[in-house]
Amino acid sequence: MDLVLNPLAALGRGVLGGCRTAGNVALFALEALSHLFRPPFYGRLFLRAFVEIAYFSLPVVALTAVFTGMVLVLQSYTGFARFNATGAVANLVVLSITRELGPVLAGLMVAGRISASFAAEIGTMRVTDQIDALTTLSTNPMKYLVAPRLLAGAVAMPLLVVVADILGVMGGWLIATLKLGFVSSGYLKATFDFLQFDDVISGLVKASVFGFVVALMGTWCGYNSKGGAQGVGGATTTAVVTSSILILALDYVLTEMFFAQ
């Protein structure tokens, strides 16, 4: 009997624990967001986080986007050539990148960089009593450490993805014209004629959500870390893993929402 019940009990505990954690994360996010509407505002800290996300992630995201665009052209050309439909390559590339690959790949790259750095910085502050020190220095740590970072994540990611979109399409165009013999003007015309405003917007909405999630998981894991250097290391790992998985899961949810319309 125990053999049957134990795994069930473990599963139940796991589900309950997961729900409790999700609830705590949601409360944490709501509290931080509420601070965005009450002074004092920490513009300087917002700017610092913004530059960290938007500017310093630029090289990684740019490289990812360019190579993705290049590969996408080769692969789709292989596929479409079998149906004599290579004219659709440009359309496929621009749609995949703006709607899907731009936000998701940029999101995953930023998850690695930013949620790790937020978790490590805030986690170190937690285990060295710096967060308690903020409270004794008349400063709300949620307002000071968390709120500016969440805002920066939601605002900076779409900008980063605009760049990723452009570079991804450029990467595709480069290979299409140089290697596959497409006519440059024709390829670009096919790209832009086909692209709709909604395609770009849906990608940018995704980007904003992903940026928020990355910042949220980074700050939450850091804020709740305990147990010295090892605890901070664990918090960093958890932040990267959970934000990456959440990006992929939310990507499906958001895509389905846009799909339904």
């Binding site: 502050m125 060295t128 009593d129 710096q130 308690d132 020190a133 004794t136």
Partner: peptide, 11 residues
């Protein structure tokens, strides 16, 4: 209230 933390806790 002022507080000096055990390990300083300087920012």
């Amino acid at each position: 209230i002022g507080m000096l933390f055990q390990n300083g806790a300087l920012f």
